[in-house]
Amino acid sequence: MKNALITASTKGMGRAIAIAFAKEGINLAICSRHSEDLVAFKDELSAINPNIKIFTAVVDVSVKQQLQDFARAAEQHLGFISIIVNNAGIYEHSSILDDADDTLDKHVNTNLMPAYELYRYFGKTMIAAREGHIFTICSVASLNPIAEAGTYSVTKFALLGLNKVMRTEMQQYGVKVTAIIPGSTLTDSWKGMEVDKDKMVLPEDISSAIVNIYKMSAGANVDEIVIKPAFGQI
């Protein structure tokens, strides 16, 4: 059995990805800041596939020590982690000129640092095994900045840049690295807003893409995939 680690795993895209991997028989290391969410979701995943192992941990991934402890514990409980899904992220609707003093730190520590640190933790193990797949959930803001979300855009640009560096470093070892670049996706980021879900990307669209990319032949890698709403961005 393969083992996957997913950050921010109980809602939105992370939740959909965990469910899709469970259906594929992949063991899971999942985390959230809320223990009650983890307990309920673990029960749900166990019902979907009673044969997989599920390791859960209450983690604030923006705190480096908590993230590193999660990575270490996941490895101890499940063994070699061959799939990483960098899903954690925050979005704040604000121009850089109107940012609070801690806005940049919050965005860097949530949108960029976890992917960087998990790569540093697991990368050499993947190289030694000559096996692994890293998925990084970026954003269309990684390609075209959103003026109303300036700091978010900056960190998502950096995240896509990190993904390119990871892919370049890992390519010769057969370790795959894929950037998932979604447009307007129906997650909690839209909570409180009136939106038409039929004109948005759904979390299940993202999880379906990830599973299909993961199942490709050993010689194939999807470097980047952009998934936008059929009717255009919201």
Results as ranks from 00 to 15, higher is better:
S208W: 14
F122V: 08
G161K: 03
I127V: 04
K124F: 11
V226C: 04
M126T: 07
R130N: 07
I127Y: 04
K23W: 04
K197W: 07
F70V: 03
I90Q: 00
Q65K: 15
T103L: 06
N49C: 13
S62W: 09
Y152S: 04
G161H: 05
S95Q: 07
D102Y: 06
Q68H: 15
H93T: 08
I213K: 06
E44H: 06
D102T: 10
A20R: 15
T10S: 04
S189L: 13
Y91W: 09
V85E: 00
A149M: 03
E169A: 12
D205Y: 10
A100W: 12
N86I: 09
A141W: 05
F135V: 13
I227K: 05
K191Y: 15
A230C: 13
R167H: 15
P203L: 10
N27W: 04
I96H: 11
D37W: 02
D196Y: 07
T168R: 15
K215S: 12
F80K: 11
M113Q: 06
I52M: 05
V222D: 11
K164G: 01
A149S: 13
A149R: 02
I206Q: 09
A8C: 07
D99A: 09
A4Q: 02
R33T: 06
S139W: 04
A209Q: 12
T125S: 11
Y91C: 03
A16P: 04
Y116F: 12
R167A: 15
K64R: 15
T187K: 10
Q66L: 11
P50G: 05
F55W: 02
R33D: 02
E36L: 10
G123F: 10
R167V: 09
S82R: 03
L112C: 06
V85P: 00
E224I: 09
T168S: 10
G183A: 14
K23T: 05
T103D: 05
F70E: 00
P145Q: 09
Y173M: 09
K11R: 15
M13T: 13
I52T: 05
A230V: 14
L160P: 02
A158W: 15
V222F: 12
A16Q: 03
I83V: 14
V85S: 02
D198S: 12
T185A: 11
F157M: 06
S32H: 00
L186K: 14
K106T: 05
D99S: 08
L38R: 00
L186A: 12
